[in-house]
Amino acid sequence: MIRINGVSHQIAGAPILSDVTLTLPKGGITALIGPNGAGKSTLLSLMARLTRIQSGSISFDDADVAETPTQELAKRLSILRQDNVLTARLTVQDLVGFGRYPHHKGRPGPTDVKLVNDALQAMALTPLRTRFLDELSGGQRQRALVAMVLAQDTDYVLLDEPLNNLDMRHARQMMIRLQTAARTQGKSFVVVIHDINFAAAYADRIVALKDGRVLATGTPAEIVTPAMLNDIFDLDIVVQQIAGHPFALHQIAPPSTQ
């Protein structure tokens, strides 16, 4: 269970998060949605100790983020940020292999090799495993980074816009992969998603942030409604039901407002 308790954060005096309190049960996919600048990435950074918590507390199960040794946390939670610049010249399998570093500290065993192979397989990277990262496309590199985080094999996985740069096919495959891991291995994913329809189709719960506050928490059916989306994004959006999922037609203005 993730407990976020009264977390506030300021950057250069400007409030980014104000008194965020959230409890996320273990297991399943939580989608973090909200307009630009709502504080989604900041919240993820605080959860993953990339940024020091200014006030409030965050804990994963019994491990408080501010107090647990960082090596311990690396075995419990992993994060992938959206702006990853890799300057080291690495092959795909070497990068994914680094995901096992918290467990083996540089001396991988058979389990590590297996988990790396599984992660490569899951992200459809096996044919590319010996390629250097700077020889890949943006989407392939993104998949390699996600594979690294999967190989880390933590109970909690925080992903900041993992669908960036992915084409439709790989975006869907990635969400299905996350869903499978959540269902079969009991993993918990917290995912910042911009495409509300991916959140509606794959998330077990959605947390909507706006102006640094939690605006709403609920199931996709509860959040993806015209009224709620208008609250969150200040935008009139038509929502239709397709195959049991709410589907937001956000690309076009509703006919009545044209």
Partner: peptide, 10 residues
């Protein structure tokens, strides 16, 4: 690998 990835890996 950079600050954030390094911290992520403990």
């Amino acid at each position: 690998l950079g600050r954030e990835t390094a911290i992520n890996l403990g």
